[in-house]
């Protein structure tokens, strides 16, 4: 659709916001577009993460009495086909995203459709007056319009797997490095939200490592990526890897001192030790069922 999906941060910011939004918040009007543009532009970062979905004109809050009247009229005349929430029903399209509604302010572009019908598309004409249509418009415009559409009917839980099968998978695969009674004891107490737990075991330390969005693994201590640099003299410099590109590597030693070393092709020799490498390689092997089963088991490790 738009370029916005280039932007990891943008998408996550939007969904994060969407997740937090309550039904009531969704109905609140947004910041007036004049200010919103400015605020959002400032929030937009650089590179791929730049920008985020910004405020489009939403309708100002309508007269509550008009919205109530409109809701009643809509319920009687429109909701069978268009759904009680105007998002589509028995044969009738979603009105929230319809051009004639998006362009409308007070019923003026909705009225011709209602009063004349769209017989070719199966919509009869309705004998409603301008005031009634204005009320219906007020009701439809009370819904927030957003492509980053907040979920309304959320599933109760993400735990859908078989804990027993998950335990068996744990024994054959995870137990090479982990123990349910050792390092993972109380895991589900440390991370009580199952989705955060799932993201955390998939990639401890969260999606911040090259992924995007938080993985909820903050409760886990993940050993850092370390590096061994072997200088031409044979001297070895070891420590936490601070940064690396094709030209430099920065190593923090045990005393917390950082040292940046020039790289020229394969000289000096640089070996990276990523403690999460096994987790990364396993990503290529999991089935979704295995993931769900393992999570169903791990949520029992209270």
């Amino acid at each position: 659709m738009g370029p916005s999906r280039n932007t990891a941060a943008a998408v996550i910011a939007a969904f994060g916001m969407a997740a937090l939004a309550t039904a009531q918040q969704q109905q609140q009007i947004q910041t007036p577009p004049a200010n919103a543009g400015a605020a959002a532009a400032q929030a937009g970062g650089r590179g791929r993460g730049g920008g985020r979905p910004e405020a489009y004109p939403q309708h100002p809050p309508g007269d509550p009495a008009a919205i109530e009247r409109g809701k009643a009229t809509f319920g009687v005349q429109c909701s069978f086909c268009h759904g009680s929430d105007a998002r589509g029903g028995e044969g009738g399209p979603n009105l929230i995203r319809a051009e004639s509604v998006l362009r409308d302010r007070d019923g003026e572009t909705i009225a011709p459709v209602v009063q004349n019908g769209r017989v070719d598309r199966g919509m009869p004409k309705f004998d409603l007056n301008t005031a009634q249509i204005s009320d219906i418009a007020a009701f439809i415009h009370s819904f927030r319009v957003a492509g980053y559409d907040a979920s309304r009917d959320r599933p109760p839980t993400i735990v859908v797997g078989d804990a027993k099968a998950g335990e068996a998978y744990f024994r054959t695969t995870c137990s090479r490095c982990h123990s349910a009674t050792g390092d993972l004891k109380g895991l589900a107490t440390k991370i009580s939200d199952p989705r955060s737990l799932q993201q955390a075991w998939l990639m401890p330390g969260g999606g911040g490592r090259g992924g995007r969005g938080g993985g909820g693994g903050g409760a886990l201590t993940v050993p850092p990526v370390t590096v061994t640099v072997t200088m031409l003299s044979g001297q070895k410099i070891e420590g936490r890897m601070e940064r690396i590109d094709d030209f430099l590597v920065t190593v923090m030693d045990a005393d917390g001192l950082s040292r940046t070393i020039r790289r020229d092709g394969d000289t000096p020799k640089v070996e990276i030790h990523d403690p999460l490498e096994p987790h990364k390689q396993l990503l290529r092997t999991y089935t979704d069922k295995e993931i769900h089963n393992l999570t169903a088991y791990l949520v029992t490790l209270k």
């Binding site: 997740a19 759904g83 979920s151 995007r212 990503l283």
Partner: peptide, 17 residues
């Protein structure tokens, strides 16, 4: 009926290999 636009799901990053 699903959602509109980019809605209806949440994407959570895992890793870049």
């Amino acid at each position: 009926r699903g959602a509109m636009g980019l809605g209806g799901k949440e994407e959570v990053g895992v890793a870049t290999l």
